[in-house]
Design a protein around this nucleic acid. Structure first.
Lengths: 127, 127
DNA sequence: GCTTACGGTCTGTCTTTTAGACCATCTATT
DNA sequence: AATAGATGGTCTAAAAGACAGACCGTAAGC
């Protein structure tokens, strides 16, 4: 992400929206979190368990980003121990559709990719 | 990526294909490269110019991955100076469809995301 | 009084990304 | 004749990012 100093304030350049969106959702964790939230609201630790191998830090940070970008809401119930619920917004839900297409593609072409890798490793002569 | 030692050899776990596919195409550069190649074959330096702010190293590395995974082909013409052409395979082209959907979503919801960010920064009190 | 659970933050380490120099060969310019 | 630029990369050192794990305060359960 390029930043240019415009007088006193910092301006974030977003030449094409794709870059901008990719910066956020173009990482493993964001997509996995959105997928985990697709069926419904989840709490912090429930998300951790659902995803399995994400660290607290990355979950916390990614959730913050997703909230910031309007994909999810964060609701804190001031109980003890605290309860925090994360849920998709309309924007987040609208993103599910293209994402599901991607996931579907991944599932149906996974075998082809694995095969391509095997082929690649079997023919190192032409490199 | 989790690895478990299975007796003598190392086994790479790929519990869900989504993780596996995301590992490769779930990064900025891969998607941008595939998008750049969508209209047709391009040479190395042409790709650099097209994408603009990618380093040679990352371009080289990501192209290698994409080739490995069967998304693109690499054709070296042994001339001087050397000419290397990158083109989408059928697999790569088939990926364009879900990707275009994602790009379309990004374009049409970009404004909403930027607005969400602005709102977020305007209301720091509830955090 | 010790452990567990909650939702995180902080720290130090490890990995990835980046910018930029470098390589060999040829053509075009000065 | 010297030099600059283009080709498609690799290499290195520094910056940025991700990770695991310790830590926090409060309260309930044992």
């Amino acid at each position: 992400m390029t930043t240019i100093s415009d007088g006193e304030e910092i301006v974030f350049e977003q030449p094409c929206p794709i870059r901008d969106v990719l910066d956020r959702i173009g990482n493993q964790w964001s997509l996995l979190i959105l997928e985990a939230l697709a069926p419904g609201t989840l709490r912090f630790n429930a998300l951790m368990r659902e995803i399995g191998d994400i660290s607290k830090q990355m979950l916390s940070r990614t959730l913050k980003q997703l909230e910031q970008d309007g994909f999810i809401t964060r609701t804190l119930y001031p109980e003890v121990p605290p309860r925090v619920e994360y849920a998709l917004t309309d924007l987040g839900r609208s993103f599910l559709e293209p994402m599901q297409q991607l996931v579907a593609w991944a599932e149906s072409h996974h075998r082809a990719i694995v095969e391509a890798r095997t082929r690649y490793q079997a023919n190192p002569e032409q490199r």
